[in-house]
Structure formats: C-alpha cells, structure tokens
C-alpha cells in the first residue's frame, strides 16, 4: 500500500516537472529531455505487464494534454511502445542468473547496466516521438539529430535520477 502511494506521488511529480521544465531544459534546440519516461522504465518488474501498459498509456496521455496539440496521442503511443519493449530488453541484457523478471532490481546496478537498459528504451521512445511529432520525413536528418541528442540528454538526466533514488 505504501509502495503504491509512493508510486502515485512519483507519477505526479514526474508529470509536474516534465510539463513545467520541458521548454526551460532544451539545449541548443536539438536536445529535448523527456525524462518522465524514466518513471515508466523504473517501475518494478513485479507489476503485471498489462498494468504497466495502462500506466504508460495514461502517463503519455497526461503529458499530451499539456502539450500544444491538446489531446493528441503522440506521447501515449511512444511511451507505450517503449514500455512494451522493456521486459524483453531486461531479459537480454541481464547476464546474472535470475529465475524470472521480477528478480531484477534497480538497486546496485552498474552504470554500464543502466546504459544498456535505459539507452535503447529511451531511443525507441524518442525515435517514435520525434517522427510522429514531425509527421513527415521532409526534415529527416534534422529529426535524426534531435533523436540522438535528446536520447543522450534524457539518459544523463535519467541516470542521475536513478543514481539518486536507487543507489544504496
């Protein structure tokens, strides 16, 4: 019960910070951080997958509501796409022996593990988000540049958050 409450508070905090700080944190017009997805990627693996889908969809939709195209579904689509990939990815990258996914913990992981877990997921999300946002391939290389810069930027913020909340 306590845990659920702390997750709800974290959800609210991530959404609040994302919609408030997004424009202020943009670097050189190409690095745009969408750090709210870090909340989704650090959800414990013990939560059933369909529930994580619903959380991701709901969170994406909430962020969408605050974006300029009120009630469009770009964030919802991208967040859901990334969360669906995370279980499989965690299986692939975990070299230590574990019986099932629920054993994976975010505590005491190395930076290399975080990089190989978070970077692909953030990349999937950003790839989907920026191309759907542009909705055209006319600015293909500019969009790619945005994706790469933003992925690295979001990862740095995400790693800092994980270090803060999951280090011993």
């Amino acid at each position: 019960m306590n845990q659920i409450l702390s997750h709800i508070l974290a959800f609210a905090a991530y959404v609040f910070l994302q919609v408030t700080l997004q424009e202020e944190l943009v670097l050189f017009r190409v690095a745009i951080p969408f750090f709210f997805i870090i909340f989704l990627f650090t959800l414990p693996f013990s939560i059933p997958q369909p529930v994580t889908y619903l959380i991701a969809f709901g969170m994406g939709l909430t962020i969408d509501m605050f974006s300029d195209h009120a009630a469009s579904g770009v964030h919802a689509f991208s967040a859901l796409l990334a969360i669906a990939a995370r279980g499989r990815l965690a299986e692939i990258i975990s070299t230590t022996n574990f019986r099932n996914l629920t054993d994976i913990s975010f505590k005491n992981q190395t930076p290399a593990w975080y990089a190989s877990y978070l970077l692909p997921l953030i990349f999937i999300h950003h790839f989907s988000y920026f191309f759907l946002e542009a909705f055209t391939f006319q600015y293909f290389f500019f969009t790619l540049l945005k994706i790469f810069c933003s992925t690295i930027y979001t990862f740095l913020i995400g790693y800092a958050l994980c270090y803060l909340f999951y280090s011993r």
Binding site: Y53, D64, A71, S72, G73, V74, A76, F77, L80, F135
Partner: peptide, 26 residues
C-alpha cells in the same frame, strides 16, 4: 495473447488520436 491484444488496442487508440487530431468531433 492478452498482453499483445491490449498493447495493439491501446496503440490503435493513440494512433486514432494522432491522426484525427485536426478532426472536428474532438
């Protein structure tokens, strides 16, 4: 396949929202 079905269903809803954004009904 309930996970996959839920996933596809939610993605379809999101896509509908994206595509129909300029639509008058919403």
């Amino acid at each position: 396949y309930r996970n996959t079905i839920l996933f596809l269903f939610l993605e379809a809803v999101a896509l509908y929202l994206i595509i129909s954004y300029p639509g008058s009904q919403r």
